[in-house]
Every structure is written in C-alpha cells, then in structure tokens.
Amino acid sequence: MPDSFIVNHDNYTDNYIRDILRSVHSIAIVGASINWKRPSNFVMKYLIQKGYRVIPVNKNSVGDQIYGQNIYPDLSSVKETVDMVDIFRPSKEAPQLVENSILIGVKVFWMQLELRNDRAAKIAEDAGVKVVMNRCPKIEYARLFGELGWSGFNTGVISVKKRRT
C-alpha cells in the first residue's frame, strides 16, 4: 500500500472522515439495540434522519425491527449491499467482524467511541477497507456538516461560504 494511504488512527483528518461520510450510503450497525435509550439506537435514528440506509445487526434480537428495519443475526445474512460496518461490540471482537465485513465487500469499517483494535485495522486496510476507530459517526457527521457547532462544540471547520442547509 503506498505511503499516502497510511492513516494515522490517533488523529484523523477532517477530509478523511468527510470523504467516508459522503461516499457511503448503506451502513450496517453491529450491536444495534432495540432499547431506544441505548447509544447504538441513537446513532441509528440519527443516521436514518440524515438519509443513510441503516441495517441493524444483532443476533439477540432477530425477528424484531428497529425504526422499521429488520434485524439480521450477522453480517453474512444481510441480503443487500453494505458500504460501511459500524460496530458497537467489544474491541476484541473486531478482527472477526473485519473478516466478516471483507467477505461481504464493505468499503469502510468503523469502530465506536472507546473501541480500538490495531490488528483488526491492519487486516481491514490490507484488504483495502478504510478504518475509523474510537469515533462516533453521529458526532462526526454533526461536527463536519454544521450541526454540532451550533451546540457550542469546537468543530474545527473554518469557512467563509454560506453552508447549504
């Protein structure tokens, strides 16, 4: 892999995250909870509001739905294209989940806040899959596309252009 593709997992550039969030359309959330009070459920609801196709995966809730979407037991059961996998599972499960993600052709493997597994990241990147760790796509979307700034957070976004609403 050329050097220019090496990603610093301690400090992602805004462009790296922005390109991912702009390029993916369907996101499978592994560990999505049917309990609407859980963070995974928050993220799912938010990403649906922002126009993403979100597919919940949770082996303990098969037969249920979250926001009208059927819950799949695992990634290999999903019968549609998945651009990105976002995991709400312990870091130690990440390598196996990366393998499963590669098999179904995902482009991005994302690990939530507090999650990090550099071995999983290497497996993914060696297979050409982009990796984000210890971040939340909901927070990153809100930060980079204007909503979080208006909550008083430092977005790092400097612009003299009128933002599209």
């Binding site: 204007g146 430092n154 400097i158 003299v160 009128k162 933002r163």
Partner: peptide, 11 residues
C-alpha cells in the same frame, strides 16, 4: 473566523 461562518439561512 471560528464559530462564526456566514449564516446558512441568509448569508
């Protein structure tokens, strides 16, 4: 510049 980009509604 930080925090005070042009107003998205009116410019």
């Amino acid at each position: 510049h930080s925090g005070s980009a042009p107003d998205p509604a009116t410019g």
